[in-house]
Design a binder for these strands. Structure first.
Lengths: 114, 114
DNA sequence: ATTACTGTACTATCCAAATAGTACAGCGCG
DNA sequence: CGCGCTGTACTATTTGGATAGTACAGTAAT
């Protein structure tokens, strides 16, 4: 699975969102160990520093935690995961309607376009 | 009307999209004169250079043209405007579905969330 | 103990975006 | 003419993201 990173937005943010999605969609399960920073960096073809920045952010959000010398793991707090899943979905939907409205397209038409 | 620019993406790109929307939504009509670069820059609270970069891009796209010492005007080519309108809407809808799919949300649920 | 892996913490460098400031050419109007 | 507006074209500087490279501490397996 390719990472499809574009240059219009900070790469580390795109990575954060990508891994967020992988967690809320269940691709990574609560308690799962993530690949190491270095592994992920190779996979995504970015600098390890960039990947670590993304991981630090995921930690701040509360989706992962790290064991200093052992690795990084998905939180076991399923409520937290579900909360973020709902929040992401809501924000994405609102953003979609906002853009469409800006183009002069109402909700009905926005739904029809899907 | 505020410009709502965020710092997560290049400002000039956000401006381009904003003015694109204003044109395809009919807020600016074909042949309308745009405010000057300097005026727009003040309005959006950005540097004139940034605004000019955005305007140059709009010109490249074919939505506006400039009269060197007179001002900048919306194209009178309504077909071009409509073409871009359809293209923007399509791209936005696809992007929405892509994000939702990444979160593990299918089309039906994505529609329901609107 | 050695080896290999983990996260983490630095410094240095590069590049694009954004800013600040200045300047010039042409049009229109009083 | 002179004034003010227009787009346009520069230079210089700053800032944040990304890169490259190195280093250290702690765990686990051999």
């Amino acid at each position: 699975m390719s990472w499809n990173l574009d240059s219009d937005r900070p790469i580390f943010l795109q990575i954060v969102e990508r891994i967020e999605s992988d967690i809320v969609s269940g691709k990574y399960l609560p308690g799962d160990k993530l690949p190491s920073v270095r592994e992920l960096a190779v996979e995504a073809a970015v600098n390890p520093n960039t990947m670590q920045k993304a991981c630090t952010e995921l930690e701040r959000i509360g989706l992962v935690y790290s064991q200093r010398t052992n690795g990084r793991f998905v939180t076991e707090d399923k409520k937290q995961i579900d909360r973020i899943r709902k929040e992401m979905a809501k924000r994405t939907a609102q953003e979609y309607l906002r853009k469409m409205k800006e183009m002069g397209i109402d909700r009905d038409e926005a739904m029809r376009l899907l």
